[in-house]
């Protein structure tokens, strides 16, 4: 499990993000924010704990944990 988390990172599909702000508001580490287009952006990748709450609450499949490219 720890191993698999190592290889994960947050991915954002900006084209699908509707800028509702839900993932940003409920991220326990407050590492997400809006970019200049009003879409979600990762502000502090170091401090993301890969809990997946943003992925679970995004209504639009626009943010998710996936393998590092």
């Amino acid at each position: 499990m720890a191993d698999s988390k190592e290889n994960l990172t947050i991915h954002i599909n900006e084209a699908w993000c509707k800028g509702c702000g839900i993932c940003i508001a409920f991220c326990p580490k407050k590492v997400l924010g809006f970019n200049e287009n009003g879409k979600v952006t990762m502000l502090d990748r170091e401090n993301c704990i890969k809990c997946g709450m943003c992925q679970m609450r995004c209504p639009d499949f626009a943010i998710f944990l996936g393998g590092k490219e």
Binding site: A15, C20, P59
Partner: peptide, 15 residues
Amino acid sequence: PHIWCPGCGHGIIMA
């Protein structure tokens, strides 16, 4: 992407 409004809860439940 689906046509639901920004922040509509329906997408969360569907997932």
